Amino acid sequence: MVQAPPEWRISEFVLSLTAASDATKRAYRTDLSQFAQWAARGGIDRPDDVDRRWLRRFVSHLSVRGLSRRSVARKASALRRYFAWLQRDGAISVDPTIGLAAPAGSGRLPRVLSVGEMSEMLGDGSVPDGAVALRDLLVLELLYGSGLRVAELCGLDRDAFRSPNTHIDVVGKGSKHRRIPLSEPATKLFEAWCSGGSDDFDEAKLARPADRDNAALLVNLRGKRLGPRDVQRILDRHAATPTHPHALRHTYATHLLDGGADLRVVQELLGHERLSTTQIYTRVSRERLREVYDSAHPRA
């Protein structure tokens, strides 16, 4: 990706996002660099030359390119935070993003897997033979049994679990820490991984065990910390149908609510800042209950 000229101060802005995740920082850097390149083609070389008219043109340009509503909304959010930062810093006198309209994200959630589908994917809870199988099953159990975000899973360090603890400490969005209970199968898998399974994986599967990321709990075949693509490959090997890793987190929340869990408790477990975010799952749960009612009740 071509870097924007220094006049745009994008690197400084990204450094100011101290509470943002690494993924958010990368996305904002990319979005803002793309905007700077697009603006340069129209003769705009500095952020203080941008007005609302140019921003509206950019949003229209993104829509014409066929980007999803969610992607356009994210890029608009990046622009709002960037120009607000420039105004606070005194680089511009007026924030041109005030009143900028952009399509809201679709709010579409991944498909919720059934209890039967999850049981088929995860097995009977026993510890599998083989280091790769052990690692893969631990990944799946953490995504579904504890509802971790993919970034939270990949960010786990070796000291995240200490036997005989039944909880793990994770770092979520905004660098917020929270403690999450482990399922019984996940606890057994953790104990097996930490008591020799990880070493077996390193010795049997890594071409250069000395290059392993020693801080990471879970690594790929290159010894590097697991990334989102690695997690997707693991799920591709074990899911009966194409499934996104985030669908397991949605399934976790929906199954909790279906089982009678309190909404505030689910909010805490998921690490949502706002209850309204968690309430999305109540809609999904209600829809699933309606489907069961329509298919099972003779008067439906």
Results as ranks from 00 to 15, higher is better:
residue 1 M to G: 14
residue 2 V to G: 04
residue 4 A to I: 08
residue 5 P to V: 11
residue 8 W to P: 03
residue 12 E to Y: 02
residue 14 V to F: 02
residue 17 L to M: 14
residue 18 T to M: 05
residue 20 A to N: 08
residue 21 S to V: 10
residue 22 D to G: 09
residue 22 D to A: 15
residue 24 T to R: 08
residue 24 T to N: 11
residue 28 Y to A: 08
residue 30 T to G: 05
residue 33 S to A: 13
residue 35 F to G: 00
residue 35 F to H: 01
residue 36 A to H: 05
residue 42 G to L: 13
residue 44 I to A: 05
residue 48 D to K: 05
residue 54 W to L: 15
residue 55 L to H: 01
residue 55 L to G: 05
residue 60 S to E: 02
residue 65 R to D: 13
residue 66 G to Y: 13
residue 67 L to F: 14
residue 69 R to Y: 04
residue 81 R to V: 07
residue 83 F to V: 02
residue 89 D to A: 13
residue 89 D to H: 05
residue 90 G to S: 04
residue 92 I to E: 04
residue 93 S to H: 03
residue 96 P to V: 11
residue 97 T to K: 01
residue 97 T to S: 09
residue 99 G to T: 06
residue 101 A to R: 14
residue 101 A to F: 08
residue 102 A to T: 04
residue 103 P to M: 11
residue 105 G to C: 07
residue 105 G to V: 05
residue 106 S to H: 06
residue 111 R to K: 15
residue 114 S to E: 13
residue 123 G to M: 03
residue 127 V to T: 11
residue 128 P to F: 12
residue 130 G to E: 11
residue 132 V to Q: 10
residue 133 A to N: 08
residue 133 A to G: 06
residue 134 L to T: 07
residue 137 L to E: 09
residue 137 L to G: 06
residue 138 L to M: 13
residue 139 V to T: 10
residue 143 L to C: 13
residue 145 G to L: 10
residue 145 G to T: 07
residue 156 L to V: 05
residue 157 D to E: 14
residue 158 R to P: 03
residue 170 V to Q: 04
residue 171 V to M: 15
residue 172 G to M: 10
residue 176 K to L: 06
residue 178 R to I: 05
residue 179 R to W: 02
residue 183 S to K: 08
residue 185 P to C: 02
residue 185 P to H: 03
residue 188 K to F: 00
residue 188 K to V: 00
residue 189 L to E: 06
residue 196 G to T: 09
residue 196 G to K: 09
residue 199 D to F: 06
residue 199 D to I: 05
residue 200 D to K: 09
residue 202 D to Q: 13
residue 202 D to L: 14
residue 203 E to S: 10
residue 203 E to R: 15
residue 206 L to I: 13
residue 206 L to A: 12
residue 207 A to P: 01
residue 210 A to M: 11
residue 212 R to K: 15
residue 212 R to I: 15
residue 214 N to G: 15
residue 218 L to Q: 01
residue 221 L to S: 09
residue 229 R to F: 08
residue 230 D to Q: 04
residue 232 Q to T: 01
residue 237 R to Y: 01
residue 239 A to Y: 11
residue 241 T to V: 14
residue 244 H to W: 07
residue 245 P to Y: 12
residue 246 H to P: 04
residue 250 H to R: 10
residue 253 A to K: 00
residue 255 H to I: 12
residue 262 D to I: 00
residue 263 L to G: 00
residue 263 L to P: 00
residue 264 R to H: 08
residue 268 E to K: 09
residue 269 L to T: 02
residue 270 L to P: 00
residue 270 L to D: 00
residue 275 L to H: 01
residue 275 L to Y: 02
residue 280 I to G: 03
residue 282 T to R: 03
residue 291 E to I: 06
residue 292 V to A: 15
residue 295 S to N: 07
residue 295 S to Q: 13
residue 296 A to L: 08
residue 299 R to M: 09
